[in-house]
Amino acid sequence: MIDDDALVWFAEIARDLASQPSEQAVLDRVVELAVEVIDGCDDAGILLLHHKRDVATAASSSRRVRDSDAEQARLREGPCFDAALNTAPWHNKVYRSEDTATEPRWPKYMPRARELGIGSMLGFQLYNTQESFGAMDLYGHRRHAFDVTTERQGWVLASHAAVALTSARTDEQLRTAIATRQEIGQASGILMERHGLSGEAAFTVLKRTSQDNNIKLRTVAEEVVRTGRLPGT
């Protein structure tokens, strides 16, 4: 049975993340919440892995987090690196290292973690798509900073973060699509007026220019709106 305080906590996190205006704002707020509400969490970050190769720190609470991500990227191992790549069922996508001094896993990364002042770590997968992978990383300066309770707290935050990120990404894609449609409409109108083209013919010119120059259609439209000329002419 979940008590009333826990239910309120769940609701507050959901509302907080849902109110963020962009995907980056969600990522930044997740990091802030992790340090604020999860017991033993001194630092937090979001690690992104593109095409299983390129690692980036999307949000972080300190330089320590960014350095840790860089080391995991260089060594191709670590709790957060593995959490991002994990393809196991959701409940198995959590990695907890209670003591970096005695942790037998990730033998190349753990000495660097200790040098960075990291005593304990938690890694949670946020999402896993064909092109990108994301993990939430929690760091404790002392050993045994995390236990089963804090792992559950982190899992709840990561779950809410995953939902909020999906929503924010969908909203941004919709706004981008609308903006692109408006740019293309304006560019088509300019070509129609200047060259006496029909709407269909003007759009065909934009598409052909995009294909011939290997430029995104929106970029072509932006250039026409900004300069009145097609790129490459």
Rank of each mutant, 00 (worst) to 15 (best):
V163W: 06
A177W: 01
D42A: 12
E71N: 02
L116W: 04
V220F: 02
A88D: 05
L230M: 15
T100E: 02
I215V: 15
F81D: 02
G40A: 13
Y109W: 12
R114N: 01
A34D: 06
E103C: 14
L191K: 00
D54P: 01
V163S: 11
T150L: 11
N86P: 00
S62P: 05
H195R: 15
G228H: 04
I2Q: 05
W9N: 03
R143L: 07
C41S: 01
T149C: 13
S60R: 08
W9Q: 10
R76Q: 07
L165E: 00
G154H: 03
W90G: 02
E115I: 14
Q173R: 14
A177L: 09
R64Y: 02
G189V: 10
F10Y: 00
S167M: 09
V225T: 14
A70M: 04
T204G: 07
S120T: 05
Q153V: 13
V8P: 00
K52W: 05
D3F: 04
L174D: 06
N214C: 08
G199I: 10
V224L: 03
R208F: 03
E32H: 11
R218C: 08
Q182T: 04
P89R: 12
V26R: 04
R175K: 15
L122M: 13
Y139V: 14
T150F: 04
H195C: 14
L49E: 03
R142F: 03
A177M: 08
R66V: 06
Y127K: 15
N86C: 15
P104N: 15
E172M: 01
L217K: 08
G185R: 07
R175Y: 12
R76H: 15
F81Q: 04
W90E: 13
S210I: 07
G78N: 14
I2W: 05
D147S: 13
R181G: 09
E36P: 00
D4G: 12
N214V: 12
V148P: 01
T219N: 10
E115V: 09
A58N: 06
E200A: 06
A59K: 05
E193K: 08
T149H: 13
I46A: 02
E12W: 01
T176N: 09
F146H: 03
M192A: 03
G199M: 05
I2C: 02
Y95Q: 01
D43F: 04
R76D: 01
A168T: 07
H144D: 14
G196E: 01
E183I: 13
T176H: 14
L230I: 03
E12G: 01
V35K: 02
R175I: 09
G134C: 01
N128L: 14
V55H: 02
P79I: 10
A88S: 13
L126A: 04
V26C: 03
A70L: 14
R152V: 04
S167T: 12
R229V: 11
D82T: 10
A59L: 09
L191Y: 01
A162E: 00
L33P: 03
Q211G: 08
Y95F: 07
A14H: 10
A58D: 09
R181T: 09
G117K: 07
A145F: 12
E131M: 15
Q20P: 08
R142Y: 03
T204K: 13
I184T: 00
